[in-house]
């Protein structure tokens, strides 16, 4: 008995440490890295923090400190993105999810800009690769949903390639209904779970 509770405590500690370890990079991402790491469009280089903050609707609005804020670039979504643009929380590239209608693998028009941005990013950075992970809501059988989720990811790949992403940079994976983002059996949860996520290695915003 003693042994068991000791073991549980030990396991708990290990898990706690693992959690802390996982928290750190996530915190860095949402809190913003130092300004030198960020992608600043050419026309905004050299502006002061105050000037940057005053420019855009996002300036300071997301609660970040002044050093990390600046306006959206004029070139989006069709920029010639530098590699570090992926870390810019104000770029379209920070959006990594597209959502689908029930039982559909059609990419909705509202996600065109986001996907064009990612396509251009991949075109500008041919050494970067992205995982497209498709998901479904819980309705319907699991294996059928597995197939449907892969079709969603493939539809996104098709779109990215249409806008210049190299085929070899885009990997497609179907996860079916197994990893819902939202729990519960409501229409809202279903809508949130019918998605494709763009996952860049080592750059998982989890957003």
């Amino acid at each position: 008995m003693m042994m068991k509770s000791f073991k549980s405590a030990l396991l708990f500690s290990v898990c706690a440490i693992a959690l802390v370890a996982c928290e750190t990079p996530g915190g860095t991402q949402s809190g913003g890295t130092s300004s030198t790491d960020e992608f600043l469009p050419d026309d905004q280089q050299g502006l002061t923090d105050e000037e940057l903050a005053a420019q855009g609707p996002n300036g300071g609005a997301n609660g970040q400190s002044g050093t990390e804020t600046f306006a959206l670039s004029d070139c989006e979504p069709e920029c010639d993105y530098p590699r570090e643009a992926l870390d810019n929380p104000d770029s379209l590239l920070s959006k990594r999810m597209v959502f689908f209608a029930f039982d559909s693998d059609q990419v909705k028009e509202e996600f065109n800009d986001v996907l064009i941005a990612h396509a251009k990013y991949l075109a500008s950075n041919p050494d970067v690769s992205v995982r497209l992970e498709g998901h479904t809501d819980e309705r319907g059988t699991r294996e059928y949903n597995l197939a449907l989720s892969e079709r969603r990811a493939k539809a996104v790949r098709q779109f990215l390639m249409l806008y210049g992403a190299p085929a070899e940079s885009v990997n497609v994976y179907g996860f079916g209904e197994e990893l819902p983002l939202a729990l519960g059996s409501t229409e809202e949860a279903y809508a949130e779970n019918r998605r494709a996520e763009l996952v860049y290695d080592g750059n998982d915003l989890s957003q």
Binding site: E143, L146, A147, E150, V172, G174
Partner: peptide, 10 residues
């Protein structure tokens, strides 16, 4: 038993 590219299911 099966690990081809894409889905290996059902």
């Amino acid at each position: 038993l099966s690990g081809f590219d894409g889905i290996n299911g059902a």
